[in-house]
Design a protein around this nucleic acid. Structure first.
Lengths: 217, 217
DNA sequence: CTATGTCCTTGACCTAAGTCAAGGAATCTG
DNA sequence: CAGATTCCTTGACTTAGGTCAAGGACATAG
């Protein structure tokens, strides 16, 4: 998807020859930090989380990936983080060797990857601001707005998002505990800013208030 | 420097034709977040900090840049962060337009930039782990080891680093207050793990202990 | 070399978020 | 569709780090 955007049909054919579709159950690992980085992946359905661990098990989720997102594009010998399916998902697997060979012939792909990486860096810096300087309420508001933005990018409209990940995963993404995430959801609900609906749906009833709380995004 | 590594002398000449050296006093701003991103910079001496602000003035320093480092390479119309000299510094300025034109002709530069961006992403993820999940003590230990690693990269040996930035800047980098940073330095000193020497020098007397505290780097 | 500002340190106290614990609501599984 | 997990919520209490305040140590400038 995203990687393919600037290619013509013949180039696309060359690229798809390298792809292998992979089906993942919820909770299935894609790869672990430190493993030799043989593949690059493109998410086609579901939600993937990427995370790093400290020796004692503390976890930082550095991102949630949705259809169209890339992972594993580091120019390193080993993966810098672990990746695991949050929900049942499908991804396209590319061999890194073959992709790099193809990149020699199709510099557009390289340009596209640079563009993706630059964008990820911008997102990473916003996440550092969130982790280092925002309160729990501000973090959760920012998170919900991020989900809404992603839902919009995927053509969904309306003011409702599907929170596919657990409170624990959200906590590990925002630098909070499960309990604090839960309490903050409850508090936002009691303030009439969000509504908690069945099957992981959250309605952002007062998006203006969320934007205000999130602090300028 | 880093960008030039893979170029031959003729290519280097083309690149240096685009460079303008800029001298900065301590505290001088390089650019502000949101400004149109006309230039890319390469640090040649001194220390630069890059940061993001919340509307109420809370600050997150997303990185410190040392000689050889790049900044502003985002593929966006505006800078995603502000940049300011910590100490008196010199940087090389490149016009983005001209650099992009040159990149069309010298794909090696693009490859190099992708490699730099990928590496920055890895560093950013480590910083997220630090900000979201490490204690004050672990954060400060990680910070000192980062400075040591950078000093090593610049050919300095020994177990002493120069802390060119203020306690306040360090706090804004680690998601802590000035006071907590100061107390943590004092505590590490009292434990015999570091020594605070004159003129911003810190001796990492027990590097093994710092590595242990930092949590596996 | 003395004054003046900035930075650093330390102390006393406070609070946001973490921890521990226990019920309750979903959601899988046979 | 009962039983078993797993996940979510809430309450009571603790604590790491923040806040406020005040000296002290460096710098830089006159």
């Amino acid at each position: 998807m995203t990687i393919c955007a600037p290619l013509d049909s013949q180039e696309l054919a060359q690229l798809s020859a390298l792809m292998t579709p992979v089906e993942l159950d919820a909770g299935a690992p894609l790869f672990d930090e430190g493993e030799t980085a043989r593949n690059v992946f493109n998410v086609t359905s579901g939600t993937i989380k990427v995370y790093k661990l400290l020796p004692d098990g503390r976890r930082q989720v550095t991102g949630f990936l949705f259809p169209g997102d890339f992972l594993g594009l580091a120019k390193q010998a080993t993966y810098a983080f672990s990746a695991e399916a949050v929900t049942a998902s499908t991804v396209c697997r590319f061999s890194r060797d073959k992709l790099e060979a193809l990149m020699q012939r199709l510099p557009k792909i390289e340009q596209r990857l640079l563009s993706i990486a630059s964008n990820e860096l911008v997102v990473a810096q916003e996440q550092m601001l969130l982790l280092g300087r925002k309160t729990a309420r501000e973090k959760v508001a920012s998170f919900l707005l991020m989900l809404l933005k992603r839902a919009r990018q995927h053509g969904r409209s309306g003011d409702t998002v599907t929170v596919t990940m657990s409170r624990n995963d959200i906590g590990d993404y925002l630098g909070l505990t499960t309990e604090t995430v839960s309490r903050t959801f409850t508090q936002l609900k009691q303030n009439g800013i969000i509504q908690l609906l069945p099957s992981h749906q959250v309605r952002l009833a007062r998006r203006d208030a969320l934007e205000e709380i999130a602090g300028g995004f």
